[in-house]
Design a protein around this nucleic acid. Structure first.
Lengths: 224, 224
DNA sequence: GCCGGGCTTGACCGATCGGTCGGTGAAAAA
DNA sequence: TTTTTCACCGACCGATCGGTCAAGCCCGGC
């Protein structure tokens, strides 16, 4: 409880909100996530909450504000949430922890996460507005810092840092499109698997290299 | 020209369509990609084409059909497009070619690709309908086959095949969210970088491993 | 000349959109 | 008791939605 802020019904960072407001945000998040912003009407939200449409306008000034509260609430604290879960230790393990923590956040605030990452991503104005509110750049820059740290420590190769960050975030950001909460693996477990694949690589260590490459060196890769 | 089908203005697989129809599909694809299906009105499409709204209904029976033509056209031939670009050779190189070919398809039909992957992804009925039309499963199963092939050949570790496929496709599917065609790297180049990272791993081979690992061996990794 | 048919249009439809309005009823404040 | 506050509602608004329709325009063939 009280980690960073009040968290309830999958709605993060809504400390001073009434139960009704939390209900509206939760239902709206679910609807925005599944039908999109334009695809969700104020009537839909009101119906899902079992209240009149007018009451939505009593608690929020308009549709945009509801969406903003959903999106900001789900993303604003992501950076802090993840940062506080990075242990001391080797940089590579920090990257692993970064991925697992992000996956945990995804699992906890799934609908709001989806609603936030899905809508308006191609509308420059609204996207900029959302960026400003959610400060997602802090989150991404934090990852790049960890990658650079791992390079400086010699734990990972001298790869392109922004590109590496994109690969790692892609594996997490695309998860909502195929993740099924009824299946066995948790998002955290999936994140660990992806970290293993990306960090250690898929390549088998004890077999021939690509054609024309240097001859194989047995046992050069730890099998973990 | 005539590779698999007529391709024009970024609209694939519309062999027998008139110029006007191709124009409508191209503009609609662009709009669907940037504003979403619900966010794009028939008036928007008509305006973008410089024609009346009625004319849209002369060429298409309704809005859904326009979207279907955009989405199907962009995805239906993806499997064939990619399959025909897989060379003979080591399975790992087939996976690399798979990624590069997919990236090429993305580059060529970018708007339609985005429109297709963005809309209705969470609506079970429409999603199932789209799956049936586009046969995207062939595409994904093809990749899994390549992965299994690489495992059987001993080129990659005994990883979880579906999960590996998801990681690879995530790196490609998320690209539309950050790729900027005005920047230097082409999608194909990006795909190669991602393949390198995923296949070879990020881990540095020539420095101290995690505690208890074998001593470093210089130059064991090709620098590409 | 004029005839037929595909391309194209503007006026129009009912439904639904986001949003507003005046008001109700109950509890808190006075 | 009276007044104020506040969660809440049904009716309604202008605008826009997807979609229809009858009629013109244009152009090659008779």
């Amino acid at each position: 409880m009280t980690e960073l802020s009040t968290m309830k019904d999958g709605v993060a960072n809504q400390a001073e909100a009434s139960d009704r407001v939390l209900q509206i945000l939760a239902e709206a998040g679910r609807l925005f996530a599944s039908k999109g912003f334009e695809g969700t009407s104020m009537r839909d939200i009101a119906l899902a909450c079992g209240i009149s449409k007018s009451l939505l306008y009593h608690h929020f000034s308009n549709k945009d504000e509801i969406y903003a509260r959903v999106a900001v609430g789900s993303t604003l604290e992501l950076y802090l949430f993840v940062r506080d879960r990075i242990p001391d230790g080797p940089p590579s393990q920090k990257i692993r922890a970064f991925m697992v923590a992000t996956a945990e956040y995804f699992r906890r605030y799934r609908w709001a996460w989806i609603a936030s990452t899905t809508a308006f991503w191609n509308d420059p104005d609204r996207q900029r507005h959302k960026e400003r509110l959610t400060r997602r750049d802090r989150f991404e820059n934090f990852l790049r810092g960890l990658i650079q740290e791992a390079i400086d420590a010699g734990e990972i190769r001298k790869v392109d840092v922004p590109m590496t960050g994109r690969l790692i975030l892609s594996s997490l950001n695309w998860m909502h499109r195929w993740y099924n909460p009824n299946k066995s693996a948790t998002p955290e477990q999936i994140a660990e698997i992806f970290f293993d694949m990306i960090f250690n690589g898929l390549r088998s260590g004890d077999l021939v290299e690509l054609p024309g490459a240097e001859p194989p060196k047995a046992g050069r890769r730890k099998s973990r």
